[in-house]
Design a protein around this nucleic acid. Structure first.
Length: 592
RNA sequence: GGCGCGGUAGCUCAAUUGGUUAGAGCCCCGGACUGUCGAUCCGGAGGUUGCGGGUUCGAGUCCCGUCCGCGUCGCCA
């Protein structure tokens, strides 16, 4: 070891000790006759003094020339700082190392930015020079947090008799759901592997194989557009269990959530976590991942709308649509007409709403709005009553299809809560959303799609509706929601042939197609498949949420940009003709 | 693919209605300095305003196209 201690380690009790430290030059204060260096590693910062009498003029001179972010080694004696010269900001602030030896292990060119600078550089620069960015305190904290969370998960599942099994990265494409990342085969011309979107099928087969409790920290890949909380390459804690029902899986994860919150954040999370059905979540919050850290619940006023003369409301209600709204407490004074216009533009542009109706609750308790003259007083009173409106509140409504009112109001809810500061950043709100529909209808083709995946088991009680009323058929599915974000999702799987056939039939997957795509799974299911189910937890999102961050890139060491590029390695990149030829590929266009 | 925001010195930003030689702080370079910890003081260097085209007497500013980054909708079984 080149060093005897880290830069975050030394205290008053170490005074008098001869130490050797290594690290990066965070900053240098050159006084001519003496030089102060803040020496940094991932454990902390220690002040090094190169001055007389320990250091001679040559050494002081050399130290004075060292550039920021150089890697140096110093040897010296731990010394208590002079009276009144301690630095309260540093854990090591009571001491300094008076150095008699100073050595540059490796210099540093002038960096485009330094890890300690207060103005964070643009994200493209941070990504291009990720090795510098990762030296920043915040990034180091995030990486440590991530490591701790993964270790907590592994420990927890090991305690519960789970075994870790690795499944292949090179698999076969099952062209449902997200787009696959494809890998051409050299040995099999015109054939492709696909990178896994999840180890779903393998883990089910592991159940058939008798590994009744499986986990894996699994890299997954989906070739879809990115978001602040979505990367094309991400990590899941993948889990599958035999002989369990949905309660068992949720109960197990409840324990993990509580343990992780306790060990990582020192927070108590009460279990069992609250559960809400999909239907209730959509009705009350318009979202299958509701943020329960604040209220502003959605209220349906369609019955009142039917009675009013206001064409937009009445027309929508009469034609099978919905008029639903939210109460924004004490917001009347905070939102100008102009700002409400912006909200209107937002719901139009992002959710396809036709407009935003709103009312202000006046001093006298009446509702005022540009459209209020279209309403009779008694109907306004009814609306106010339903929404629980009080003086100073804003009531906002969408009149539209169920889907648009859900999405639009969920979006408004989220945006308003953020703008009004209704969210306690310290809160960690965890809950379950259950009983998702088995199927949803493709708008264009009118065909049924599996909402989760085609191996999801329906609720026992809904089995009769599977064939004739698929829209009413609910799944044994459960999503873990943390602070309004989907942090995991799973299902109990179908383990009998008859139900599986029925589901395939409904999805328009004929026997031949099923055989072609998932034959290996169907085959395995014939050979003694136990009842089983599982879940996948989004590790990147867990870390992001536990860290209180709003961007997943902040917890991933080497993330991709919105165009799925790596600015540091410049992946993806072109390859030479020989490589393509070996893979039996020709490209239609040459990239720029 | 749609909508929106942004791109000016190595970095973070400014630049009035289109108007003189595009500024500031930090960084960097040179010098001074033994108690700093955002060191201080003196001096200096540093610009194809992302790129291409257009309008204009004149463009960082206006228009068109394009590239890049971010947010979001679609998409993400």
């Amino acid at each position: 070891m080149l060093r005897t201690h880290t830069c975050g380690q030394l205290r008053k009790s170490d005074v008098g000790t001869e130490v050797t430290l290594c690290g990066w030059v965070e900053s240098k204060r050159d006084h001519g006759g003496a030089v102060f260096i803040d020496l940094r590693d991932r454990y902390g910062i220690t002040q090094v003094v190169i001055g007389p009498p320990e250091a001679n003029a040559d050494l002081i001179n050399e130290a004075g020339r060292v550039s920021a972010e150089s890697v140096i080694l110093i040897r010296g004696t731990v010394t208590e700082r002079l009276e009144g010269k301690t630095n309260e900001k540093l854990d090591t602030g009571a001491i300094e190392v008076r150095s008699e030896h100073f050595e540059v292990l490796n210099g540093c060119e002038t960096p485009p930015f330094t890890p300690s600078q207060s103005d964070l550089p643009g994200e493209d620069l941070r990504l291009k020079y990720r090795f510098l960015d990762l030296r920043r305190r915040e990034m180091q904290r995030a990486m440590v947090l991530r490591s701790t969370i993964v270790k907590t998960m592994r420990d927890y599942f090991a305690e519960h008799d789970f075994i870790d099994v690795e499944t292949p990265i090179l698999g076969r494409s099952t062209p449902e759901g997200a787009r696959d990342y494809l890998v051409p085969s050299r040995v099999h011309p015109a054939n492709f592997y696909a990178l896994p979107q999840s180890p779903q099928l393998y883990k089910q087969i592991l159940m058939v194989a008798g590994f009744d409790r499986y986990i894996q920290v699994a890299k997954c890949f989906r070739d879809e557009d990115l978001r602040a909380d979505r990367q094309p390459e991400f990590t899941q804690l993948d889990l599958e269990m035999s002989f369990v029902d949905a309660d068992d899986v949720m109960g197990l994860i409840d324990g993990l959530v509580a343990k992780t919150a306790k060990e990582v954040l020192g927070k108590e999370v009460r279990t069992p976590l609250p559960r809400m059905t999909f239907e209730e979540a959509m009705r009350r919050f318009g979202s299958d991942a509701p943020d329960l850290r604040f209220g502003m619940e959605i209220v349906d006023v369609t019955p009142v709308a039917k009675k009013t003369e206001f064409r937009v409301f009445r027309g929508t209600a009469d034609s099978g649509g919905f008029v639903r709204g939210i109460t924004v407490k004490d917001a009347a004074a905070k939102y100008s007409r102009r700002q409400i216009d912006e909200l209107t533009e937002y719901v139009k542009a992002d959710f396809g709403a036709k407009g935003l109706a709103w009312f202000r609750v006046e001093e006298d308790g009446s509702l005022w709005s540009p459209i209020s003259k279209n309403f009779e007083a008694e109907h306004l009173a009814e609306i106010k009553e339903l929404l629980g409106g009080e003086t100073g509140d804003l009531l906002m409504f969408l009149a539209d299809s169920w889907e648009v009112t859900c999405k639009g109001l969920a979006g408004l809810r989220k945006r308003l809560a953020s703008e009004l500061g209704l969210i306690d950043p310290e809160e960690l709100n965890c809950s379950w959303v259950t009983e998702f529909p088995m199927f949803d209808r493709d708008e264009e083709t009118g065909r049924w799609n599996a909402m989760h995946h085609p191996f999801t088991a329906p609720l026992e009680s809904d089995l009769p509706s599977l064939k004739d009323k698929p829209q009413d058929c609910r799944a044994q599915a459960y999503d873990l929601v943390i602070n309004g974000s989907e942090a995991g999702g799973g299902t109990i799987r179908i383990h009998d042939q008859a139900t599986q056939s029925d589901v395939f039939e409904l999805l328009g997957i004929d026997a031949e197609t099923a055989e072609d795509r998932f034959g290996f799974l169907l085959n395995a299911l014939k050979y003694g498949a136990p009842p089983h189910g599982g879940i996948a937890l989004g590790i990147d999102r867990w870390v992001m949420l536990f860290a209180g961050l709003e961007n997943i890139r902040e917890v991933i060491a080497f993330p991709k940009t919105q165009k799925a590029a790596d600015l540091m390695t410049e992946a993806p990149g072109s390859v030479d003709k020989d490589q393509l030829a070996e893979l039996h590929l020709r490209t239609a266009k040459t990239g720029k």
